[in-house]
Design a protein around this nucleic acid. Sequence first.
DNA 1: GTCTATAATTCGATAGAC
DNA 2: GTCTATCGAATTATAGAC
Lengths: 197, 197
Amino acid sequence: MTKNHSPRKKQFLDESLKMIHEKGYKATTMRDLAERMGFEVSNIYNFIDSKEALLESYLFMISEDFHDGIDHILESGYPPTEKLKALVSLNIRLTSTKPYQVGLLVNEWRNLKEPKLTKFIDRRNEYEEKVRLIISEGIESGEFRPFDMDIITHAVLSSVKWIYYWYTDHSEEVNPVELERQLTEFVLGGVGGGAQS
Amino acid sequence: MTKNHSPRKKQFLDESLKMIHEKGYKATTMRDLAERMGFEVSNIYNFIDSKEALLESYLFMISEDFHDGIDHILESGYPPTEKLKALVSLNIRLTSTKPYQVGLLVNEWRNLKEPKLTKFIDRRNEYEEKVRLIISEGIESGEFRPFDMDIITHAVLSSVKWIYYWYTDHSEEVNPVELERQLTEFVLGGVGGGAQS
DNA sequence: GTCTATAATTCGATAGAC
DNA sequence: GTCTATCGAATTATAGAC
């Protein structure tokens, strides 16, 4: 499917990815992409079948990357706290490696058309279920406090969702080690050090 | 500007807001809006000047709501922890009151055109600065741990950003009191109860 | 792999009658 | 405030020459 990339095709895919992230999928036209590449619109179809196929390709690839990562964590046998740390680490690793793909994953998935949209949402729900598994294990073991599962799962997911910002829109340099350390500290212990209420 | 709403105009604005949230701004056409209202496209322009103006109106209104809220918190004289609790509370209150507007604020702001786009981003940066103020005060007083300001600010903002999901796409009922309690607990203390490294 | 040319559709918006 | 009719521009995509 995605093999046999000529250098020119790879360049097109890279530029397209960046531009779709910057302007949004709907706002990025084939003319925009062609103009950035310095050729005519029709040449795009030497590389891809359709605009829709381009989005699908990126979204499902990065989606599977996250699944591979979290599957590995679930099979690790680590205690829940270590699994959660590994989850933060996974997010930072994938985001630093493929920042624009992660950006698409956050912002552009809803531009998929049926039946791919349903397929994507199902797969995303499966991922969220895996995150729930880690958290519920931690609550049962007493390592985590007894949160509402829906709320805490979305809070944790949301806490790592914005990382792509650091590697795309952010101008300053990023220290991945420090980012992971700080974000882990926040997810595990919040802004304050102890209990409240 | 937004006064003298006839019931029909108010209904149009409500339906538009909901539809733009569901389909996305770019994907929602004037024909879509007219169809939902049961009249022809041209009638839309009895209520609004342009599609762009519709988006602007909603975004800047809800943006100012957040500013009003956080300004009130900053003037409160509360200690940092209480200010942070109030910030969570503000997010839940505004989101439960105007869930679709908050959804637009998160997802559709970048569809603004210049010069409104720059104006919006400037205003958003001002809001983020106010959040930073609360957090830095907490770190200096020792109530919060010594995080990197950029990282922790975005982490906190991200932790409350997904709340709109509960009031728009979420099917189950929401208990605002419980949501606030749990989310506050997470932001202040994380998933675990104590410190780590 | 690049071009010209164009098809076929959809878009936001306007004019003007009632 | 609702309609019909339409404009002009922009959209994705294709055909076919070089």
